[in-house]
């Protein structure tokens, strides 16, 4: 037996690189539901009009709870590219490529670029959101069984 025997096969939230995203654990679970539909969304305040990112349960401007979901662009233009070749966190590929993306003037997002080789992405290139499944979470169910909580997350990829 290697490692810590009591953890064998068990899930520890403190070792998870992705957020818990189901309704039981998160009030903004709709963001992840929208990702599954190919939509990149956030919340906007119906009282003061301020649009926040990431999505919230209260407006950080006026503290209203009267929020609605709005769509953000799923395509944008690359402003700066970074290529990490050393020290990539476990769970991410090497090289780990990121880009500062201008989402049609609505949001500047520093995001991971997947399906991309070193030197391939340049300033001015178009990128689009890509949604992919990530490790499901085994949640305690009845009678000691685990219920698999399916999950997704997003990155961006070059428009070819």
């Amino acid at each position: 037996m290697r490692g810590i025997s009591v953890l064998n096969g068990r899930y520890a939230v403190t070792m998870d690189m992705y957020p818990l995203q189901s309704k039981e654990f998160n009030r903004i679970y709709k963001f992840y539901d929208h990702l599954r539909e190919g939509r990149f969304t956030t919340t906007k305040c119906n009282d003061c009009g301020v649009r926040s990112f990431p999505p919230r349960v209260i407006c950080p401007e006026c503290l209203s709870e009267n929020l609605e979901w709005v769509d953000l662009p799923t395509e944008g233009t690359v402003k700066v590219v970074t290529e990490e070749v050393v020290g990539v966190p476990l769970g991410f590929e090497n090289p780990l490529i990121h880009a500062l993306i201008d989402l049609e003037g609505q949001l500047t997002h520093f995001a991971r670029i997947i399906n991309c080789q070193t030197g391939e992405l340049k300033e001015g290139d178009r990128v689009k959101m890509a949604v992919f499944p990530v490790d499901p979470v085994p949640v305690d169910g009845k009678r000691g069984e685990f219920v698999e909580m399916e999950r997704v997350f997003y990155a961006f990829e070059k428009v070819k």
Binding site: M17, T82, G87, F92, F110, R112
Partner: peptide, 21 residues
Amino acid sequence: HDWDGSQGLGLPPPAFSMVAQ
């Protein structure tokens, strides 16, 4: 963690590379 961390932006070098560029 839920947003930048999940993009693999844990260690700071990519951010500072972008700043430098």
